[in-house]
Every structure is written in C-alpha cells, then in structure tokens.
Amino acid sequence: MQGLYAVFRKELADHFSSYRFVILFALIAMVSFITSYVAGLHLKEGLEGVAKPKFVFLMLFNTPGALFSMVQFGAFFGPLIGIVLGFDAINKERAQGTLIKITSQPIYRDAVINGKFLAGVVTISIMLLSIVLVISGFGLTLVGVVPGVEEIWRLFIYLIISIFYISFWLGLSILFSILFKSIATSALASVALWIFLSFFVTLGATVVANAVAPLNAKEGTSPEILLKNTTVKERISLFSPMVLYTDASTIIINPMRKTTQSLILMGPMERISASRFENPLSFAQSLIVVYPHVTALIAITLICFAISYLVFMLQEIRT
C-alpha cells in the first residue's frame, strides 16, 4: 500500500507539473470555452421570447458551438488526453534506468503500474470535472439557466462515462509503453490505433454493410435490406470505442434521443404522432438505453488495464 501511494503521489505531481499537461489543459480549456460560449449565445438567441424547453442546461453540451458540440469534442479529443498521459509511462523509466531502482525497493511490482494508472485516471477526472464546472458556470451567467436535479445527475453519469472512455486510451497507451522499448514507437502505435478504431472502423463498417446488403439508390431499397444494412453497420461500429462512447454520451446528455439506433423506419402517421407527442426520456429510461454501451466501455477499459498488468508482471526488469 505504501508503495502504491508513493508511486501515485509522484505520478500525480509529475502530471500536474509537466508542460505537456499544461499545454493539453490549456488547449482543451480554450476549445471548451469557445464551444460552450458560442453554444450559449445560440441558445440565448433561440430562446428569446419562447417558453424554455425542459433541459436547456444540457443543451450547452450538445448544441454545436463553432463547429461541434462539447460532447462531440470529447469523443474526438478525449483519447488524445489518455494517450498523452500514458504513452511513456513505463518505457521512459526503463530508458532512464529508474524502473529497476523502483522495483528493487520493498514494494510489490504491481504498485508501479497501479499507481501510474490511478494517477492518470485521477488527472483525467480532475480535468473533466473542472471543464464541466466551467461550462456550467458559463451557462449560469450567460444563459441564466439553473440546472435541475436530473440534469446534474445526467452530467454526473456523462462524466463517469467520459472518465472510463479516456481511461481506456490511457490503459492502451500504458500497454504500448510496456510492450515497446522506444517512446516514439509507443506514441505512434497509440495514435495509429486511435485513428484506426475511431475512424476506420466506421468506414469499414459502411463498406462491409454495403457488401452484405447493398443499397440501391436508383430503384429504392426494400425496408428489409435497409434494415439489414444498418444493423450490420451498427454492430461493426460498436468495435470502435468512439462509437460506443458517442452513442452512450449523446443519449445521456440529450433526453430527447430515445435510442442509439440511427435508422428509424416510420410511416407518415407514426411520424406525425411522434413529433406531436415528443417527450424527453426519463433519466432511468435513458440509463436503460445506454446500459449495454456503458458496460462495454467499462469492460474494454478494465480488460485493457488487466492486459497491461499481466504483461508488466511477467516481464523481466533488468534496467
């Protein structure tokens, strides 16, 4: 325990005093400011003389600001935070010869990897929490809306999901820092996997779906084929942590969204009734909708860390 605490404290201090953290934080804070500020302005205009919708506060997070909403920004940029905090966790210590020195102290070896991972998770949590608080502050002053209890709960769940999402990338980059002796290699491998899982999987999903169930633009596609195409596409996309996260966080932040499915086939009558009786999903219902996504996200994060843990415990440390 004393070993874990010592490593944790050192790593945390390192993160908060490192240039890379300061730069990263400044960048994220800047984008968040601008995004939520612009979103706030849009909201203010849009709500002029209109009865306020129920979840105005959350709209700060899911209304596109300059180019994207906060939620989209997190999905895109979050992995980079995890990667930056973890890509040289182990191999840097190995290269400078401090790893053997630490492990020859009276601690269990897993204290090193646990301490590093925990410090990363806490850094991520503090970062996200402060950003959410800043945006909330904007909301209060700019738009003049006070979050309701349910909105606070939704934000809280959103925070938790985001922490796991970014921690997945932290775990993955730590794994690479164990596997690759070179710091440049592990950084590159992390970024490559990030690009692959975030962008190429969705692209691949579309390709596969079109091969399995080709859409016919000219003559129109039968509903069965259309359904199959979408199902295949969505199933494959779930292999992308970004899709998992985006699905989960949009549902939580936007109560008007009722399903993670993108395709809803409705006839004209259904459509009219749907728009007429549009009501937000209750918090509990939203949770049920995203439950599988959140579980999957937590699972891949834990699996990723468990693999790092095992590899590290089995590796011989000589330097």
Binding site: Q2, K10, T98, Q105
Partner: peptide
C-alpha cells in the same frame, strides 16, 4: 534488507537530490 544500486543507476532528471531521496524514502514507507 538489501540496498541495491543498479549498474548505471538512473535518476529522474527533473528532481533535485533531496526530492530523489524523498521518493525513495516514501517507497520504503
């Protein structure tokens, strides 16, 4: 029980001597 100084012992370049020793002390409880 063993005080081990590895071959080419490494240090955290950003720490000073006192901080380096503090970390080792903390790891030893």
């Amino acid at each position: 029980i063993i005080g081990y100084m590895p071959e080419n012992v490494g240090f955290y370049p950003e720490l000073d001597a006192v901080q380096s020793l503090e970390y080792i002390a903390a790891l030893n409880g």
